[in-house]
Simulated assay, not measured.
Amino acid sequence: MQIWPAIDLLGGKCVRLQQGDYGRETVFSDDPVAMALKFQSAGAKYLHLVDLDGARDGQPTNHEIVREIVAAVDMQCELGGGIRSEKTIDNLFATGLHRLVLGTAALDDPDWLREMAKAHPEQLVLGIDARDGYVATHGWLEVSDVRATDLATQFHDVSLAAIIYTDIATDGMLQGPNVPEMEKMQKQVSVPVVASGGVTTIEDVRALADVGLAGAIVGRALYQGTIDLSEAIEVAETGVIASSKDQ
């Protein structure tokens, strides 16, 4: 299982929201590039970036800092947030990003997602954010009447790199992930599913790996020290920890 440490960008700063609420923001760093390098030094091979301004406003606005992060690290980087046009996709891939996460656009215009996936096979990730099992859009400010599993199966024949499934109820709460829901989604589809939301401890990482998730995004837990990134990577890759910290 892959571990994707997360950097959420708001106003050029590294922040975390609780349950997607822009009114419940915590700033963890004024230097996202330094944070990315810190994750890399801990052994991270992957980096999950979110443009929260873009998710809310409908177009990426942290383009320059994203470019700086990608140039500074030797990791596979993906970005989500406000990616709703072909021009934006082309501009972002030009920065060196490996994958782009599309969410709202997939719900609003499924045919467009199919088109973009044909143009960029295995490079686009479907981001499904759910509250009570229903898809949330536009930076989690709106909840649709579409079930998360239904949206996932709708794209069973699309050449996606992965699905990121976020449980908003657990996101940023440090109370553990919704493992049964994540397992259910992975069993529903053939593409890799990356779990997001609530990963707090090494045991959470192990639980997600045990039920077959392809990856896990870890955010607030890294910033608040409830999980060690190097250990999380070791557990995700091997299922065990050599360190005494897990004894």
Results as ranks from 00 to 15, higher is better:
T238P: 06
A94F: 14
P177C: 00
S244F: 14
V135D: 00
M182D: 01
D30I: 08
G225R: 14
V194M: 01
T153Y: 10
L37P: 06
G197M: 10
I7Y: 15
I241E: 11
S41F: 09
H156K: 11
A209I: 02
T95P: 02
H98Y: 14
I83L: 14
V135W: 03
R206F: 06
D74S: 13
D30H: 15
Y46R: 12
E25S: 04
A221M: 10
E64N: 06
V15F: 04
E25M: 13
L100Q: 07
I202Q: 03
E122V: 06
Q76M: 06
I227E: 06
D150M: 03
P177N: 02
V143S: 10
L222Q: 07
T153D: 10
L79G: 08
A242S: 15
Q19L: 09
K13M: 07
A161R: 07
K187F: 03
L79T: 06
D8I: 02
C77N: 01
Q2D: 12
T149F: 12
E183Y: 05
D90S: 09
V205T: 11
I217G: 07
D171G: 03
W4M: 01
G11C: 10
K245A: 11
D246Q: 11
E237H: 11
G11I: 11
Q186Y: 10
L107Y: 15
A152E: 03
K118L: 05
L151W: 08
L9Q: 01
V199I: 13
Q123V: 00
V211Q: 03
Y223C: 03
P192M: 10
A117K: 10
H98R: 15
A72R: 00
A169C: 02
F28Y: 15
L79Y: 10
I241L: 15
E203I: 04
L174G: 04
M116K: 15
Q247H: 14
L47Y: 00
S230F: 15
R67L: 01
I217N: 12
L160M: 01
D108S: 12
P121C: 05
A55Q: 01
Q175E: 14
T226E: 06
V15N: 02
S85Y: 14
V179T: 02
R67W: 02
A236P: 05
T200M: 13
L47N: 00
D228L: 08
G11H: 09
Y223L: 06
L160C: 01
P177F: 00
G172Q: 08
E122R: 15
